[in-house]
């Protein structure tokens, strides 16, 4: 089966010499929910831009269900729906007209465009706003219109660039549920997001991109296992002299024992037994596990959230 999206040795050098993509490779299977994570300027939007025809290619290739994004752009672009990060709307038309026009650009007949528009408006709770202009809508509603526009021609592949940026939690969860639903129905979804939780919740596979290179690709679980840390944080009622926890290493931080273990749930009982046998009393045991955010920070040296820099990760704590 052909991959939904395939990028081979993709390069992009902008005027002025900035090399935004340095020969990246990506294979996104049909029906998958795929995340592309990276800090600002990593190359996410450039990659999406090349796939969708917004950015000219410098080298390599991108294909959509086997159709080359340049030489077979008609077939390729018909299969894709894009929701860009920025909320930009044609200012002359109502929401209903915008959706009908967008469907028409993709070749839908008047009747089909009207039907799909009605479906999308209902799906995103915009039916009452059909005759409103985009400028009259709240930020959350504009985001719904943006995503409805990407889906109005019923594409097989949906590319969402920061789809929940600036939306409230209720809408975010509504969108998550909808995206899960259309993914289950067979649509391939490529998502870029600043919200790590979003990637953890939704994506089966994640690629981390930094400085124009794909650093790593795997499922969020495997990434945290391979590149993160997990273990037990144990608070003792009384200190134990010369505590030995064979075969594990531990650190004593703020009077608490931190034991690094790959599978803390399985090993917890053995650790507790060893402490008890050496006369230690246990007040509290907590399992800690690195998040995808920690993995991202470790691999890129950057946080996805500039404003969240103050957040201390578990690993940072262990390195004190």
């Amino acid at each position: 089966m052909k991959p939904a999206l395939e990028v081979k040795n993709l390069r992009k050098v902008y005027e002025g010499g900035l090399e935004a993509l340095k020969g990246i490779n990506l294979t996104i299977p049909q029906g998958s929910f795929y995340g592309l994570l990276g800090p600002n300027g990593a190359g996410k939007t450039t990659t999406i831009g090349i796939i969708t025809g917004l950015v000219n290619i410098t080298g390599g290739s991108a294909s959509v269900l086997g159709f080359d994004s340049v030489s077979e752009f008609r077939q390729a672009r018909k299969l894709i729906g894009l929701s860009p990060q920025e909320l930009n709307f044609d200012v002359f038309f109502s929401i209903g007209e915008l959706l009908e026009l967008q469907a028409g650009y993709y070749g839908l007949s008047n009747k089909a465009a009207k039907e799909r528009t009605t479906v999308m408006l209902e799906q995103f709770g915009l039916t009452e706003k059909r005759n409103s202009r985009a400028r009259e809508l709240s930020g959350g509603m504009k985001r719904r219109v943006q995503i409805a526009k990407a889906l109005v021609h019923d594409p097989q592949i949906v590319i969402l660039d920061e789809p929940t940026a600036g939306v409230d939690i209720e809408l975010r969860h509504m969108l998550w549920n909808y995206l899960r639903q259309i993914n289950k129905e067979g649509k391939t979804i490529l998502l870029t997001t600043h919200y790590i939780e979003e990637a953890e919740q939704l994506c089966e596979t994640v690629s981390i991109i930094n400085d124009g290179n794909i650093i790593v690709t795997d499922s969020p679980e495997k990434l945290t296992q391979a590149h993160g840390m997990s273990g037990l944080e144990i608070t003792l009622t009384s200190e134990v002299a010369d505590l030995k926890l064979d075969p594990w290493l531990y650190h004593l931080i703020d009077g608490k024992i931190h034991v690094n273990i790959d599978h803390p749930e399985k090993e917890m009982a053995k650790v507790i037994n060893q402490i008890s046998e050496q006369g230690g009393g246990i007040e509290n045991v907590r399992i800690y596990r690195s998040s995808l955010e920690d993995v991202f920070l470790k691999l890129t040296g950057k946080s996805l959230h500039e404003e969240d820099e103050k957040f201390e990760t578990q690993e940072a704590l262990l390195n004190v």
Binding site: R77, L82, Y106
Partner: peptide, 10 residues
């Protein structure tokens, strides 16, 4: 920037 709506079409 709504020209992108047209540029991404077939």
């Amino acid at each position: 920037r709504f020209i992108e709506d047209i540029l991404i079409t077939p």
